[in-house]
Design a protein around this nucleic acid. Structure first.
Length: 404
DNA sequence: TCTGGGGTCCTAGGACCC
DNA sequence: TCTGGGGTCCTAGGACCC
């Protein structure tokens, strides 16, 4: 099941005056934003997800723009998922607007799966949004089927007809094949899933690595897949925040301010999740196709931006030369899987009942700022250092405020 | 005037260990 | 006379997903 133009549909549900009109959820055209979701009315103008906002605005000047409200979408998503769980015992949510569920005939119910799916569609519609569903013998087939007749589609691929259903479709419709793989396949003369299905799996392994043979199997409609009831929520591998600026940053002061800003966002989220990591990554994007990252291991895991932010600032020297314009700055923390032995730390800071150490004070400061921002808003408290960003920063973190 | 932000997984080379 | 083999960890980059 895939919700139709989900974010835009929720906006139209919440703003009746926007119904029947082109609505675009995404970043502002002035701030290098992209389209997150376009309503079907906007799509008739050629607007689609991931399109640069300035381009979308040119195609559809009358569109209503909003930055979106993720908390609200999460709330609606939960209601939809509840319907699925009510109708079938085995539901695998894969994203905010997508889920697999197992309606294999006779497995959990004697009812015809088509009837179950139609009822799900009716119940979801009564919540105020619509969905499309694909039925097939495995996840690849079902997902591709769900995309064939949007919106409000129900596409059934009967067992035994997978290969003929998939064969004429372009390779790009299969998840896992993006623009780069599409291009490489095209160079090999492979354009459709039918052609991919006939390839020698070992040849595909040589070109695409370990995933190659599986790609062939999936294109044949022969993949074995299982719907997993529940994906561990707590196996997060990394937490990061990044920001694209309306104007390139060019000075060290601006960059250090930006690093401070995104580090604080990451620190807050780490503490909220109760995670400490021992690996810090700094990411800089110089232009649309040139991104560089630098990583460093820490002596011990941390969730304090004063610690990992300082390391990120040190990493700057390896990536950036004074005068180079930077469009995006990101700081991430990973390495939470700490079964590893404690590293020998040559510089003291024992883990014992830490007396007054500067590190301890700074950590306490971070916790205190979390509290103030929680109560009075993200902008309530800012380091003087970070104010240098003022004119370059897009209005971030203001979910729910209409963009224009 | 000119493409986001949050993630995951894979690859490949080098350092290092036994 | 002229450099093994297996393994782990670290780093950087890239593809991909929604």
């Amino acid at each position: 099941m895939d919700l139709d133009a989900f974010f835009a549909s929720v906006e139209q549900l919440d703003h009746p005056e926007w119904r029947g009109k082109p609505v675009i959820v995404g970043g502002s055209p002035k701030h290098r934003g992209v389209v997150s979701t376009a309503s079907y009315e906007a799509r008739t103008f050629g607007v689609h997800s991931a399109m640069p906002s300035w381009q979308a605005q040119r195609l559809c000047p009358q569109a209503i723009w909003t930055r979106g409200n993720h908390a609200r979408y999460r709330e609606m998503s939960n209601k939809v998922m509840q319907v699925l769980k009510d109708e079938t015992p085995l539901v695998e949510q894969v994203s905010i607007d997508e889920a697999f569920f197992d309606v294999s005939p006779g497995r959990f119910s004697k009812e015809n799966p088509i009837d179950i799916c139609r009822r799900i569609q009716r119940r979801v519609a009564s919540l105020g949004v619509t969905c499309s569903i694909g039925i097939g013998v495995n996840k690849t087939v079902a997902k591709i089927a769900s995309d064939r007749q949007k919106p409000r589609g129900l596409t059934i691929v009967l067992p035994g007809t997978e290969a003929s259903f998939l064969a004429p479709l372009p390779v790009r419709v299969m998840s896992g094949i993006g623009s780069a793989s599409e291009e490489r396949l095209s160079q090999l003369g492979i354009h459709t899933l039918g052609q991919l299905a006939q390839q020698d799996p070992e040849r595909m392994r040589a070109v695409f690595g370990v995933g190659g043979p599986r790609m062939v199997l999936r294109a044949q409609g022969a993949e074995q897949s299982r719907v997993k009831a529940y994906v561990e929520p707590d196996e997060v591998k990394s937490v990061s925040n990044e920001r694209t600026f309306a104007h390139d940053l060019t000075t060290r002061k601006e960059l250090e301010a930006a690093i401070g800003h995104v580090s604080a966002l990451t620190g807050t989220r780490l503490r909220k999740k109760g995670l400490k990591g021992h690996q810090v990554t700094l990411k800089l994007k110089f232009d649309i196709s040139h991104t560089h990252t630098a990583q460093r291991q820490l002596a011990r895991p941390t969730d304090d931006e004063h610690v990992f932010g300082a390391v990120a600032r040190e990493l700057l020297d390896g990536l950036w030369r004074e005068g180079t314009g930077v469009r995006l700055v990101g700081v991430g923390v990973s390495g939470f899987d700490d079964a590893r032995p404690q590293q020998l730390d040559l510089f003291g800071e024992s883990d014992g009942p830490a007396e007054e150490s500067p590190q301890r004070d700074l950590r306490a400061l971070s916790v205190a700022t979390d509290d103030i921002r929680q109560r009075f808003g993200a902008g309530a408290l800012t380091y003087g250092r970070d104010l240098r960003l003022h004119d370059a920063r897009p209005q971030d973190g203001v979910d729910g405020v209409d963009g224009h």
